[in-house]
C-alpha cells in the first residue's frame, strides 16, 4: 500500500501541516478515525512513524494545532462508510475512473485510498468491469473527493 496516498496520511497532513503543531483534539480525532476505518495499530504505527520522519521533521511550529478543524471535517465525512450504498458508490466511482482513462499512477493512488476505507474491492470491480454492471455516479461523497480529483472526475473549479 502506498501510505502517502491513504486517508490516514491525509488526516495527518491536515492535523500537522496547518501550523506545524498537533493539538490534543487532533490526536483524539485521529484515534476516532482509526476506529472508523478499522485501521489496525501496527499499520497506523507504520504510517505515523514514516510521516514523522518525512514530514514532521521538516515542520516549523507556528501555532497551537489549528489543523483540528479540517481534520474534524474529514472525520465527519467518514460516516459515509456506514451508508448501505457505499459499496455501490465505490463501484460506480471505479467505472467512472475507467471511463475517464485510468493511468497506473491514478490506479495506485485510488486503490490505496479506497483500500484503507474498506472499499477497495468494489472500486476495483468497477474499474475492471467485474460482476454486475456498475451504476452511474450521481455525486461524489466528500471522503472520496480526493480520489475523484485524482482520477480527473472533478477539478478545483467544481
Amino acid at each position: 500500500m502506498m501510505e502517502e496516498h491513504t486517508p490516514f496520511w491525509h488526516a495527518l497532513e491536515l492535523a500537522w501541516c496547518g501550523d506545524g503543531a498537533l493539538s490534543l483534539h487532533s490526536v483524539r480525532l485521529l484515534d476516532a478515525m482509526q476506529q472508523m476505518i478499522s485501521l489496525d495499530d501496527s499499520t497506523r504505527a507504520a504510517i505515523e512513524s514514516r510521516f514523522e520522519e518525512e514530514i514532521v521533521a521538516d515542520l516549523t511550529r507556528a501555532g497551537f494545532g489549528c489543523g483540528d478543524q479540517p481534520l474534524a471535517a474529514l472525520v465527519g465525512t467518514l460516516t459515509f462508510l456506514d451508508d448501505p450504498a457505499a459499496q455501490e458508490v465505490a463501484r460506480a466511482l471505479g467505472k467512472s475512473a475507467l471511463l475517464a482513462g485510468l493511468s497506473k499512477e491514478r490506479w495506485l493512488f485510488s486503490c490505496a485510498w479506497m483500500d484503507q476505507l474498506g472499499l477497495g474491492t468494489p472500486f476495483m470491480e468497477g474499474v475492471w468491469l467485474e460482476g454486475d454492471d456498475a451504476g452511474e455516479l450521481a455525486r461524489v461523497p466528500a471522503v472520496l473527493v480526493p480520489v475523484a480529483r485524482q482520477i480527473g472526475l472533478i477539478n478545483d473549479d467544481n
Partner: peptide
C-alpha cells in the same frame, strides 16, 4: 496498459478473457 492508460474497451477485453 502499454500506453499508460486503461480504457473501457481494454477493460472489457480483459474481463472477457478472464
Amino acid at each position: 496498459w502499454v500506453d499508460g492508460i486503461l480504457d473501457p474497451a481494454e477493460a472489457k477485453l480483459l474481463a472477457r478473457k478472464r
